[in-house]
Simulated scan of single mutants.
Amino acid sequence: MLRYAAENIQKQRYCIQAFERNDREMLAFLLAYLLPFVSADNMTFNGQWLTGAYVLGVIFLVVSHAGAFHFNPVMGLLRYHFYAVRNQDGVTHLLISRAELRRPNTEIETVRLAHNIYFHTGD
């Protein structure tokens, strides 16, 4: 779908005044809350639906409170990065990019996927 959007949606220039990487913070929270399950001697959940509900509940709470509904671990495996970028007007948006941002005050080519979500189409 991202390839389709990059090819068919009108491209816009986006001037990045400042940026911050967003795709690392959520994993730390999940690791901290789920670490007791990883370190347990017996990790089988033989019919213990309450444990599964707890794990899913923790994941849901972390994702909802972080405002990270758009975060997708599969996209991370495909080497996409998530950035909070601020434009010249001081408005912050989410940028999804395969390229790693290195310098502020650069202009990139994007497509708008949603209200505050942009996809970087260039290198």
Rank of each mutant, 00 (worst) to 15 (best):
M1Q: 09
R3Y: 08
R3L: 12
R3G: 07
A5S: 10
A6S: 08
E7Q: 10
N8G: 02
Q10S: 11
Q10D: 09
Q12F: 14
Q12P: 04
Y14S: 04
C15T: 13
C15M: 07
I16T: 00
Q17D: 04
F19T: 04
F19N: 01
E20H: 12
E20N: 13
R21K: 12
N22H: 14
D23L: 04
R24E: 15
M26I: 15
L27W: 12
L27R: 12
A28M: 14
A28S: 15
F29D: 08
F29V: 07
L30D: 04
Y33E: 06
Y33R: 06
L34Y: 01
L35R: 14
P36E: 04
P36Q: 08
P36C: 04
F37K: 00
V38Q: 11
V38K: 11
S39Y: 13
S39D: 12
N42C: 07
T44Y: 09
T44W: 03
F45L: 15
N46L: 15
G47Q: 09
G47F: 03
Q48H: 15
Q48R: 14
W49F: 11
W49S: 13
W49N: 11
W49I: 11
L50T: 14
T51F: 06
T51M: 09
T51G: 05
G52A: 08
A53T: 10
A53K: 14
L56T: 09
G57N: 11
I59H: 01
F60A: 10
L61G: 06
L61H: 14
L61E: 14
L61D: 14
V62Y: 02
V62H: 04
S64P: 11
S64A: 12
H65P: 02
H65W: 15
G67I: 03
F69T: 10
H70K: 07
F71I: 11
F71W: 13
P73Y: 08
V74D: 13
M75Q: 10
M75P: 00
G76R: 05
L77R: 10
Y80P: 01
Y80G: 00
Y80N: 01
A84R: 12
V85H: 03
V85I: 04
R86Q: 10
Q88T: 10
Q88S: 13
Q88P: 00
G90T: 00
G90M: 06
V91M: 12
T92K: 08
L94C: 09
L95V: 02
L95K: 04
A99T: 03
E100L: 07
L101Y: 01
L101S: 00
R102A: 05
R103A: 09
R103T: 12
P104Q: 00
P104M: 06
N105I: 08
E109F: 02
E109V: 05
E109W: 05
T110V: 13
T110N: 03
V111K: 04
V111H: 01
V111N: 00
L113M: 03
L113D: 01
A114G: 05
A114M: 07
H115V: 13
H115I: 12
N116S: 14
N116H: 14
N116L: 13
I117S: 02
Y118K: 05
Y118C: 00
T121I: 10
G122E: 05
G122S: 06
D123Q: 08
D123I: 07
D123P: 13
D123V: 06
